[in-house]
Design a protein around this nucleic acid. Structure first.
Length: 323
DNA sequence: TGCCCATGGTAAT
DNA sequence: TTACCCTGGGCAG
């Protein structure tokens, strides 16, 4: 599933292409009847907190979406490319045409969420455009909600949460969430305080959205390796500076993720190592999904263990875990 | 073609 | 702690 960086990118797409516009909100799948409360209203704001997306309308109500593990947004329309992402280099600037495969762990500007084939397109060059395509395109698959403006459309599939919230409801959801670096200026202190208040292993704490919002299974494993920290170290016992360094690393990784649309975590590698890793999208992390493979630093086999029903990857040698 | 798996979270037990 | 939600890519046969 998209971790926090993806949801910030989705929010940016909404800000760029839907804010200030009156939209039709429908549920082609028919499973989101409450969409009528938003239909015909104007989008005034869109933002992310952790993995939660909020699209606010002029009625005061907001669409609240959590993609869960399956969800994804597809965007289409005759609109300009997202300059930030398009100019970020790497693979993000590529067009994702009809039928083009968007590989696992990557995002296109047209489809953000669970890895899947893009069906729609947004902002491609004229030479690359399929002129036979009509706007808006017919919904494909199980579209929970469609948001349609005059020149852009967003389709949502497979979310865990898709609901209409009043301003009080929005506040209630956000109150339950830990700090998000792109939302909370004082996030570092809140993160440290919440860690120190709990006696759980840091491997659990990083996945707890009440302690820090937006980190998922990939960033969790990678951040702990980067910090050479045992996932089993109890947060309470960790030096405050270690927690602060973890937060600062999350800030750094999140910004990279939002800019590039990829979970790039190997900025500590040599240029050669990085090139080789990026060439193979299945081999671009320090430890995530590398169980049994040699650690890139010490060649000890990477270990996978289940932690709260999620796969946890670590290097026992580098991270000081006795197995 | 059919099964397995996945970057999550919640409700039930 | 387990079951379930829900979608689609990857892969074995």
């Amino acid at each position: 599933m998209p971790e926090g960086h993806s949801v910030h990118r989705i929010a940016a797409q909404f800000r760029r292409h839907f804010v200030g516009k009156r939209v039709a909100v429908t549920s082609p799948q028919g499973r989101f009847g409450d969409c009528v409360q938003l239909d015909g209203h104007t989008v005034t704001e869109a933002y992310a907190v952790g993995k939660h997306l909020f699209v606010v309308f002029d009625s005061g109500d907001a669409l609240h979406v959590h993609l869960g593990i399956y969800g994804a947004w597809d965007f289409a329309g005759d609109v300009a490319l997202d300059d930030t992402a398009a100019s970020a280099g790497g693979r993000m600037g590529q067009t994702a045409g009809r039928g083009t495969v968007v590989g696992a762990h990557e995002e296109s500007l047209a489809s953000i969420g669970a890895p899947r084939r893009t069906r729609l397109r947004m902002g491609e060059s004229d030479s690359d455009r399929d002129d036979s395509a009509e706007f808006p395109p017919e919904p494909v698959g199980q579209v929970r909600v469609r948001i349609l403006a005059s020149d852009a459309v967003a389709d949502l599939r497979g979310p865990t949460v898709c609901e209409v919230l009043t301003p009080n409801g929005v506040e209630r959801v956000q109150h339950e969430l830990g700090p998000d670096p792109l939302v909370d200026k004082s996030g570092e202190q809140r993160f440290v305080d919440r860690c120190r208040a709990t006696g759980t292993p840091i491997g659990r704490a990083l996945m707890n959205q009440k302690i820090v919002a937006g980190i998922g299974n990939v960033y969790r494993a990678e951040m702990l390796f980067r910090a050479r920290l045992s996932p089993f170290a109890v947060t309470k016992s960790l030096p405050e500076e270690t927690l602060r360094e973890l937060w600062r690393d999350w800030v750094k990784l999140l910004k990279i993720g939002v800019t590039t649309g990829q979970m790039l975590t190997m900025d500590g590698m040599s240029a050669g190592q990085k090139r080789a890793a990026l060439a193979n999208r299945d081999d671009r992390h320090w430890v995530y999904r590398r169980a049994g493979d040699p650690c890139r630093v010490c060649e000890t086999p990477i270990v996978m263990e289940m932690m709260e029903s999620r796969k946890l990857y670590f290097c026992p040698q580098c991270q000081g875990v006795s197995t």
